[in-house]
């Protein structure tokens, strides 16, 4: 038997000398690289295309002026940019406290062995995967009509809050779970109450992770068009929102509206607004990465 094995070792050595790593190894590496480049190339193509098309209209008039159907050369998107800011800030104010508190409850107070809590957990995981248009239907039926809030900023913010709440809860739980049990045990052993332990030890340590998750969740909300279209965000509006009960439009909807206009100038405007939206998303994501790197601690 041993006579059979020795030559194989020799053979491998020989192969490595002749051809480098075995074929399987090399090809697998290329497959992985190919998978990576699909995403990168698509993103690069998108960015380059949008930038080339929209660059000529990337001027201050884009955020200084209101939309105009008669003068595409003077049209801007101020009402959409302000609308997006109003909706996103309101969404943050509503969904972050609720989401973070829910996460604290699930991590620190709920008994994970109880069936009821397991059920809640599965539901939250599922909700994170529900298509956004479904939240639009819910928002239209319950928030806009049953609660009679109409087609307003608050309706949009409540709907988007529901949409990103599961993401906020899940990422906040991850951050809270990453705080070692020994910290909690130490705090409790020194006589702190559970409230003191959470508010003075666990939460401060978890804030960077929670903030990162929250920003990523809000980045998702700012790019949503589908649920808001269903809620009746208007497509032509020449004033900024002036309160929670105001009419509004948001950037993705303004882009959608411009793209379907007959005049070619509007396509350029749409691309220019895409650049601004991409810029805002990039800044939000960069801020999330900064927070993570700056404040994250390893235990």
């Amino acid at each position: 038997m041993s006579a059979v094995f020795t030559p194989i070792g020799e053979q491998v050595k020989q192969d490595l000398q002749d051809t480098g790593p075995p074929l399987q190894d090399r090809s697998f590496r290329w497959v992985l690289f190919g998978a990576l480049s699909v995403g990168i190339i698509t993103l690069a193509a998108l960015l380059i295309f949008v930038f080339l098309e929209g660059y000529p209209r990337l001027t201050p008039t884009l955020w200084q002026n209101m939309p105009s159907i008669r003068f595409p050369e003077k049209a801007g998107a101020q009402s959409a940019i302000m609308g997006s800011i109003w909706v996103i800030v309101t969404t943050a104010v509503i969904c972050l406290p609720v989401g973070i508190m829910a996460a604290i409850y699930l991590e620190e107070y709920a008994d994970p062995t109880k069936r009821f809590n397991k059920l809640i957990e599965i539901n939250i995981q599922n909700l994170a995967a529900v298509p956004s248009i479904v939240y639009g239907i819910l928002g239209l039926g319950v928030i806009a009509r049953a609660l009679a809030l109409g087609q307003t900023v608050i309706t949009a913010a409540l709907t988007l809050s529901l949409l990103v709440l599961p993401v906020v809860i899940i990422s906040s739980r991850e951050a809270i779970r990453a705080v070692p049990q020994s910290i909690r045990a130490g705090s409790l052993a020194l006589g702190a109450t559970q409230w003191q332990t959470i508010s003075r030890q666990v939460m401060p340590a978890a804030v960077p992770g929670i903030a990162t998750g929250a920003i990523l969740a809000l980045s998702r909300a700012i790019g949503e068009a589908a649920p808001l279209l269903l809620l009746g965000a208007v497509t032509f509006i020449t004033f900024n929102p002036d309160g929670l009960m105001s009419s509004y439009t948001v950037m993705p909807i303004q882009i959608y509206n411009w793209i379907s206009q007959s005049r070619e100038e509007f396509q350029v405007l749409a691309a220019a607004l895409c650049i601004i939206l991409l810029g805002i998303l990039l800044v939000m994501n960069a801020f999330a990465i900064y927070l993570r790197n700056r404040f994250q601690r390893r235990w």
Partner: peptide, 17 residues
Amino acid sequence: AELFAETNPDINVTVGT
């Protein structure tokens, strides 16, 4: 709505699609 706004700046007209 746009032409109307030139003479009636305090009336807010919104158009949905």
